[in-house]
């Protein structure tokens, strides 16, 4: 028994090493004084300073954060409605099509989603004159569209193991349906909504392909800027950027883990 556990532990060790060695490398190199990745020439914060002064990267990051916040919020609203419909409405007309539309973006190759949305925007601009030009708006719409699927899946699975008798108890005690939703359902699925929002936010922040298709001149998101920089070669500023992102995400997940524990203790599992 203990021998088998040891072997499983080994699998985990190798798996985690595979996942984390590249990340550790980014962090270490971000503190390397040298521009070259070959030599370690001393500990330095100079690339963080350079990153701070790199206006192109900072502007792109701010733009991406703005798009991600709006897209995540939009996707959460639409995804919640979609997840609710799938979990609660039973068999309605068009359910098959609806289910397929909600789930397909999860696996759709990004190049297809990006290309098709771009062609839609072009066709719309031609026929109804909107959107006049591509940029922040079109990228945001595109991100809402593909992130909605992720939120819907999270909400649907939360609702699937939701104890309906809680809502029935509230109805029985005299709460009207919309009150039940506000006072019972919403608070109980709030953790799912929060993780759906975070997921959508991250996906939007991380997307290169769809943004490249749907964006226009003057609206370069962070991944677009990073990608064009990467084509020219590695720069230590990007290592510094990666380290900042890793630290922020790790802290965020730690907080989420703690909050999740508190929330699940409060909700009772």
């Amino acid at each position: 028994m203990s021998r088998r556990l040891g072997r499983l532990g080994l699998f985990l060790g190798v798996g985690y090493a595979f996942l984390y060695i590249p990340i550790a490398l980014l962090v270490v190199l971000s503190f390397n004084d040298s521009r070259l990745i070959t030599v370690w020439s001393g500990f330095s914060f100079r690339w963080y300073v350079a990153l701070w002064n790199n206006e192109r990267l900072i502007d792109a990051a701010l733009l991406s954060l703005r798009i991600a916040a709006v897209a995540a919020t939009g996707a959460t609203v639409i995804g919640m409605a979609a997840g609710f419909a799938l979990a609660r409405f039973g068999a309605f007309r068009g359910r098959g099509l609806f289910g397929a539309m909600v789930a397909a973006p999860l696996v759709m190759p990004e190049v297809i989603t990006g290309l098709s949305l771009l062609l839609l925007f072009v066709a719309l601009a031609e026929s109804v004159g909107w959107p006049a030009e591509r940029g922040v708006t079109t990228v945001t719409i595109a991100h809402i569209t593909f992130a909605t699927a992720y939120v819907a899946v999270v909400v649907q699975s939360r609702l699937a193991d939701f104890d309906r008798s809680l809502e029935e108890a509230a109805l029985d005690l005299g709460a009207r349906p919309w009150k039940v939703f506000l006072l019972i359902t919403l608070p109980l699925i709030a953790p799912a909504l929060a993780s759906g929002w975070l997921l959508a936010f991250t996906l939007s922040l991380d997307d290169l392909v769809i943004a490249s298709f749907t964006s226009g001149p003057g609206a370069s998101t962070l991944p677009m800027v990073i990608f064009s920089a990467l084509r020219l070669g590695l720069t230590p500023e990007l290592f510094a950027l990666a380290t900042v992102i890793i630290v922020v995400v790790s802290l965020g997940l730690l907080v989420a883990l703690k909050l999740g524990r508190v929330a699940s203790a409060r909700v009772g599992g």
């Binding site: 070259l36 990745i37 070959t38 290169l208 590695l234 990666a242």
Partner: peptide, 30 residues
């Protein structure tokens, strides 16, 4: 929960920058 979180954590960091890490690992001077 923690073990699962550790699998997912890299996914929450930038995809492009993770690809970049492999360039740093595998380049001729990597």
């Amino acid at each position: 929960n923690l073990l699962l979180m550790l699998v997912v954590l890299p996914f929450w960091t930038s995809f492009l920058l993770r690809v970049m890490a492999w360039i740093g690992l595998l380049a001729d001077n990597g």
